[in-house]
Write a protein that binds this DNA or RNA. Structure first.
Length: 423
RNA sequence: GACCCCAUCGUCUAGCCUGGUCAGGACACAAGCUUUUCAAGCUUGGAACGCGGGUUCAAAUCCCGCUGGGGUCACCA
């Protein structure tokens, strides 16, 4: 049976590139009816931090990448020592101080058939003796990796292209240990917009950053799967559907540039089709954080607002920026907006509108529209003359949903107050 | 520098394996429709096989070279 693993080291938050590697492993496992192992590679005692481990587990769960087995290398040090001793006893390794190194024979050709790239070969002349156990008694990366992959029965090692040159070294370790090497597949790397490697200066590189920006996990996952693979003539594909189509053979060899615009578009698709109740559940905590709503707030009103903006946002944070005026007590207009409002004297229509709206029996979309249209006719104006200034006065923005929908969600009190304050 | 990997619109990609459809789709961009604005939606448009050699009746597709990009050269993972 197919068994794959994702092996992050807890020296930082889950990186977007790591998430993509995890995703492809996960899809491969599901596509093959196999298992997915999560292994924390925390052998670097200095740099590994429990909070990073927790964050990685969190991000994995958030993305929906569940695991069948879980291991931590720090729990397995005896195993590595044991295998190193075995190599020492067999004369395949030697000590250098307290460190243990693997003897590498020169002049050999090491080749492997990469799942994605086909045949790749290296000459052992390029490979020096490999550190197996470090002087401090902890295992070196390649050694713990090989021991674990072998003992855990990993059948396919799918990882980033940056590991290609580690592969021959690890194959040598498999040989020395007498273990059968798994199949290897090396994924193309994800690059930033400038074609350089994704790094801190690129902006958001951690999955948690994207979560904080208001990307939905389904949206992020969908975008990530498009980097180096294609589900066919279709961009919006959920994880379950993708798994039925996924084939490691169809994975690209070329590095892909991360395109924020497309990510935003994919995410917008998910938001647009997301259930309003779920969206509200995600947005309400953000509104609370801004101090705009509290436990006593009208949930129905929030959902109506979410509905109004569902098709107008790419991330949940967009909602905060664009619909915040609906929840703030007061809004402030910029100098430009004020100047625009005062370009023409609309004090009469504004005060009349405020007056009539405050007297309306109900305050819903139909009623506010009726009041507005009647007023416009009474004053011999056109709707266009008044719509824009009123929108500006109510929302401090020249764009937004329909004006009457906006009024209805804003509510009578805020609407009237803002109209009165405008002149 | 050495070794390894890669190369289709600006970007993500389909097509390449098993040569022969105007090189298809998506994001972005432009125009139009719709509209109280914006967004969404719909329609239309511009936009690519890095270069040079082969092989072949025929090459994006197969082979070689060049150029370009990337990765690795740690007792970090």
């Amino acid at each position: 049976m197919v068994k794959v693993r994702f092996a992050p080291s807890p020296t930082g938050n889950l990186h977007i590139g790591g998430a993509r590697t995890a995703l492809f492993n996960w899809m491969y496992a599901k596509a093959q009816g196999g298992q997915f192992v999560l292994r924390v590679e925390d052998t670097d005692l200095e740099r590994s931090k429990p909070e990073y481990e927790a964050e990685i587990l969190n991000s994995m769960a958030w993305l929906g990448l569940t695991w069948d087995e879980f291991y931590k290398q720090s729990d397995r040090f005896p195993l590595y020592r044991e295998h190193a001793q075995k190599l020492l006893d067999e004369g395949r390794a030697y000590r250098d101080g307290t460190a243990v190194l693997l003897k590498v024979d020169k002049g050999r050709e090491i080749k492997f058939d990469d799942l994605i790239r086909g045949l790749i070969s290296f000459n052992t002349d390029e490979i020096k003796d490999q550190v197996l156990m470090k002087s401090d008694g902890s295992p070196a990366y390649s050694f713990s990796c090989v021991v674990d992959d072998a003992l855990m029965g990993i059948t396919h090692v799918i990882r980033g292209e940056d590991h290609i040159s580690n592969t021959p070294k690890q194959i040598l370790i498999y040989e020395a240990l007498g273990f059968k090497a798994p199949k290897f597949g090396h994924l193309p790397l994800i690059m930033g917009a400038d074609g350089a490697r994704l790094s801190k200066r690129f902006g958001a590189v951690a999955v948690s950053d994207y979560k904080g920006e208001g990307f939905l996990p389904d949206g992020l996952v969908n975008y990530l799967m498009l980097l180096g693979w294609s589900p066919g003539n279709q961009e919006i594909v959920n994880l379950a559907q993708a798994c039925t189509k996924f084939s490691i053979k169809k994975v690209n060899k070329t590095a892909a540039q991360f395109d924020m615009e497309k990510l935003r578009w994919v995410n917008a698709q998910y938001i647009k089709h997301c259930d309003t109740v779920r969206l509200a559940d995600l947005i309400i905590p953000m509104l609370k954080e801004e101090g705009w709503v509290d436990g006593s707030s009208d949930r129905r009103r929030i959902e109506t607002a979410v509905d109004l903006y569902k098709g107008r946002m790419s991330t949940l944070r967009d909602f905060l920026e664009r619909a915040g005026y609906l929840f703030m007590k007061e809004i402030s207009l910029t100098e430009e907006m004020l100047a625009e409002l005062r370009g023409k004297d609309l004090s009469q229509p504004f005060s009349l509108l405020a007056e009539r709206l405050s007297k309306a029996d109900v305050f819903d979309v139909a009623t506010t529209e009726k009041v507005f249209r009647e007023l416009v006719v009474d004053l011999g104006m056109t709707s266009g003359d008044l719509v824009h200034p009123v929108r500006l006065a109510l929302s401090a923005s020249s764009v937004g949903p329909g004006l009457f929908e906006t009024m209805a969600v804003l509510g009578r009190d805020r609407t009237v107050a803002r109209l009165q304050k405008a002149y």
